[in-house]
Design a protein around this nucleic acid. Structure first.
Length: 552
RNA sequence: GUCCCCGUAGCUCAGCUGGAUAGAGCGUUCGCCUCCUAAGCGAAAGGUCGGCGGUUCGAAUUCGCCCGGGGACGCCA
């Protein structure tokens, strides 16, 4: 194992206990990597944090700790006190180089860790209505959510990737009617397109598809029957499109949950949820509607569950949906919703809380909007009007790798502008190529005919170059990076890691030659490092769904 | 009016459980291919971390107020 950070933390805790008789927790003992590598490989601020409780100067607190740490941390080649009261550690080169063989042995699983400890977590993401193609906004959600799931899976969580299909509401009726209208147009007949109908090309395509397949038999059919048929056909085809686009985008969904599922068997699950809420005294009737007393749980107004016309509000089947997740054994739920759903977070949390579920059951990450910008002016995008840029178009222009990198590398809390001109052109300066190029260079070295094959070795004593040390250190930090990114659900930490990794690698590549025909030992050890770097980089790219090309 | 997100280099963004000279990519300027891929490397220029206060040994990071940008506030989904 190469988890120096944790070992230092444990040693520091023990040293504090031994020297001052104080118990400290992980939050107290912060171990970090100094910005300036001259300071050391790792540092802790524990002495400064103890200054208040011990009523002593940080430097004076640190001195005795250093003596203990020197004794208890054989992997550290030096432990020193610095200016305000930091304790700085330097890892012994021999210890550091052990990571190379660890990586080579682990291969594809290097970086995997068990910090999730089998925790069951259900991630609901994308969940776009099957009323049109996925567009740029969904592309952000999909890339981010998929990366989160990959991080969870790599960190030992038991993760279920779920897509909730809103196939029961008014929007589906709109789709059905829009299709009927387009179907009539196909045969040169008039049928009004609803005002809030779907104008996009894919709706026309689907109507044409049906027309070609079924002929004109629906022109004179019973309107109700026709409507139902087109709605069902539309949903299936739209859903198929979505599934194909997601697969193309390298996003895998384990579980597709239909909203209509909750209406099945005479709305069994929805009724059960409503009955439970009512029996718990969480509801009341007013103006012919059924209300949820959400204000009693922190909402700013009560919410309607059943409208006065007898139909259900969107919230109601979704409560059943969330209960069903817990029922299936997932106590920890993650939802990735668009910013327009932000006000919806509170009411859903209130509902689950009111139903007696623990406060931390539902975790909603709100994804800010992707604004399309052309020449500095926003281009309004809408699925309804059909002018949205689809995920497929974006990928065709940019490539899946660049698109995924773009969305994963930016925190979801920032609303981002996607420049249409930029999006339409493959920009060679895109950071993703910088990262992939490093991989190609590594691969080239490993597979070059003139360069000997790597032969396994126990030790790497000749890797003494400063950049080699930094590379080994970065490689050794990878599992921790993965665990941290999983825990905080921030896959952009991985793109940050990759960037600092490949920057160092490119610099190393230019300053040091791996192949030294007059020194086969050195060559071999550098090949070992290159192999470890290659495995690490490939695994890191894999976590965000970006390919590692052998050649560029 | 209430609530949420954002405001860091010319541009796009990291950094935010408070810590040692504020980072990266792009862009700009100047160097580097007889040598493992120049989609690369090295160097330089570029910042009152939106503003004002508070908390303390220490604040880009925490708290309050203000300014600016975006979004949400339906018996829509």
């Amino acid at each position: 194992m190469s988890d120096f950070e944790n070992r230092i933390r444990e040693a520091a805790k023990a040293a504090v206990k031994e020297t001052y008789g104080i118990d400290t927790d992980d939050d107290m003992v912060v171990v970090e990597i100094p910005k300036d590598p001259k300071m050391g490989d790792y540092s802790t601020s524990i002495a400064m944090r103890l200054a208040k409780t011990l009523h002593k100067a940080p430097m004076a607190i640190a001195e005795p700790l250093v003596e203990v740490l020197k004794k208890d941390l054989p992997e550290a080649s030096s432990v020193e006190v610095a200016k305000p009261g930091f304790i700085n550690f330097r890892i012994a080169r021999d210890e550091l180089s052990k990571v190379i063989n660890t990586v080579i042995e682990s291969g594809d699983s290097y970086g995997h860790n068990n910090t999730g400890n089998g925790q069951k977590v259900l991630v609901e993401w994308v969940s776009a209505n099957p009323t049109g193609k996925l567009h740029c906004g969904h592309a952000r959600n999909a890339a981010w959510g998929d990366a989160i799931c990959r991080l969870y899976e790599a960190s030992g969580y038991d993760c279920l990737r779920e897509y909730y299909i809103n196939d029961a509401g008014h929007q589906m009726e709109m789709l059905g009617e829009s299709l009927v209208s387009r179907y009539f147009s196909y045969f040169g007949k008039e049928y009004p397109l609803p005002e809030n109908g779907y104008h996009a090309q894919d709706v026309i395509d689907i109507a044409n598809e049906i027309a070609k397949r079924d002929g004109d038999k629906w022109l004179d059919a019973d309107p109700k029957e026709r409507e139902a048929y087109f709605q069902k056909e539309g949903e299936q085809i739209e859903l198929r499109n979505i599934q194909e686009d997601l697969a193309y985008y390298r996003c895998h969904i384990d579980s597709w949950i239909h909203e209509t599922f909750f209406y099945a068997n005479d709305s069994q699950r929805i009724k059960a949820a409503l009955n439970k809420m009512t029996s718990m005294g969480l509801t009341y009737e007013k103006d012919g509607a059924l209300w949820f007393k959400s204000t009693e749980y922190g909402d700013d107004k009560d919410r309607v569950l059943k409208k006065s016309d007898g139909s259900l509000a969107y919230l109601t089947p979704d409560i059943a949906n969330h209960l069903y997740k817990v029922e299936r054994g997932y106590p920890y739920l993650v939802d990735l919703w668009g910013a327009d759903h932000h006000s919806y977070v509170t009411r859903m949390k209130c509902a689950l809380k009111a139903l007696g579920l623990p406060e931390n059951t539902l975790n909603v990450d709100i994804i800010q909007m992707v604004r399309m910008v052309e020449d500095g002016v926003e281009v309004k995008m809408s699925k309804r009007t059909g002018n949205a840029i689809t995920l497929r178009e974006l990928c065709d222009d940019l490539g899946v790798d660049a698109a995924r990198w773009f969305f994963v590398s930016k925190d979801i809390a920032t609303q981002m502008d996607l420049d249409l001109k930029l999006a339409r052109t493959r920009d060679n300066n895109n950071p993703v190529y910088y990262a992939q190029y490093a991989y190609s260079r590594m691969n080239s070295i490993m597979n070059k005919e003139e360069i000997p094959d790597f032969v396994e070795t126990d030790a790497y004593p000749l890797l003494t170059d400063e950049k080699e040390m930094r590379l080994m250190k970065l490689i050794s930090e990878f599992p921790n990076e993965v665990a941290g990114a999983a825990k905080t659900r921030k896959p952009n930490k991985i793109t940050e890691y990759i960037m600092s990794f490949v920057k160092l690698y490119h610099s190393y590549y230019n300053s040091v030659h791996v192949n030294n025909p007059d020194n086969p030992e050195l060559t071999n050890q550098r090949l070992g490092l290159t192999k470890a770097a290659m495995i690490t980089l490939k695994n890191a790219l894999e976590l965000i769904g970006v390919s590692a090309p052998d050649k560029m």
